[in-house]
């Protein structure tokens, strides 16, 4: 295998996402507007409720995780969505490319965008609410961000699988799945307050553990024995499953002819 060809295939998807982002007016909203609105409104709410600095940290960490996951996940989903919207899906699957190229290329752009959103939100929360994100230290912050980006990759691949299976009818999942994350991963509350049956569900999401581990640096006792390790192992398992789901979806499309239907 020629590694430059491999890298070129990954770069093709990354480059395309960058080109498209540059031509999309909503890009500014995704990257600047919504994240700013999110962090400012939650921050102001903590002021209104007169929360102490720990509680403020708890909510802001949740908000920033949510925004970062969302913006990075969108980029991964775009790898398939752009083609479905333009009805040009077949050319991509006619070429000798694998899911790894599509996923990695778009994920890299997603990470870049996620980092931008994160930096913006971190700056805003420091300036407006005096919250120091870097208090936890660089390794903890890196693990937190990696955890968020892995969740984005998993969600992005699952959204892509749905879009390949159901076409534009499933595109809403690109914006809706994040709400699932919000309910189950303890974005605005600790998962321990969920009813036991729902808490079981929460324990299936890797982001739950990633958030738990990061909040431990802001004075919240960890609810799990090895949160980071559990989070990353779960992420790896789900990543494998999501990749498999997308591969199966593509094969199914090749059998039913949906790949052609989505191209005319």
């Amino acid at each position: 295998m020629n590694w430059r060809s491999e890298a070129g295939r990954i770069y093709a998807f990354a480059n395309r996402n960058v080109l498209m982002a540059g031509r999309n007016v909503f890009f500014v909203f995704e990257l600047v507007f919504w994240p700013s609105v999110g962090v400012l409104s939650i921050g102001l709410m903590t002021r209104f409720l007169a929360l102490d600095p720990e509680m403020t940290a708890f909510l802001l960490v949740g908000t920033m995780a949510l925004s970062t996951v969302q913006v990075c996940q969108l980029d991964v989903s775009y790898a398939v969505l752009f083609d479905v919207w333009s009805k040009s899906v077949k050319h991509q699957f006619l070429a000798p490319v694998g899911i790894r190229h599509l996923a990695l290329g778009s994920w890299l752009v997603g990470i870049a965008r996620g980092l931008t959103v994160f930096a913006l939100q971190a700056g805003l929360s420091r300036w407006a609410f005096g919250f120091d994100f870097f208090h936890a230290g660089a390794p903890a912050l890196a693990a937190f961000l990696l955890g968020c980006f892995l969740t984005s990759l998993i969600v992005g691949l699952l959204v892509s699988a749905l879009v390949v299976l159901f076409g534009t009818r499933a595109e809403v999942s690109a914006w809706a799945t994040v709400n699932l994350v919000m309910v189950f991963c303890g974005i605005y509350y600790p998962v321990s307050i969920l009813p036991p049956s729902v808490a079981v569900l929460a324990s299936l999401f890797p982001l739950t553990y990633v958030l738990d581990a990061f909040r431990a640096h802001f004075g919240f006792a960890s609810a799990f024995p090895h949160p980071l390790l559990t989070g990353f192992v779960l992420s790896a398992v789900y990543l494998g499953l999501a990749r498999w789901a997308l591969a199966r979806a593509v094969i199914r499309c090749r059998r039913t002819g949906a790949l052609l239907k989505m191209s005319e």
């Binding site: 070129g8 770069y11 480059n15 395309r16 040009s88 050319h91 000798p96």
Partner: peptide
């Protein structure tokens, strides 16, 4: 055939050429 609407001919050709290595 269709291609992504907002891309330009050289960008479209380069994208697929890269997919072929």
């Amino acid at each position: 055939s269709n291609f992504i609407w907002s891309l330009r001919p050289p960008e479209i050709l380069a994208f697929y050429a890269r997919l072929y290595g």
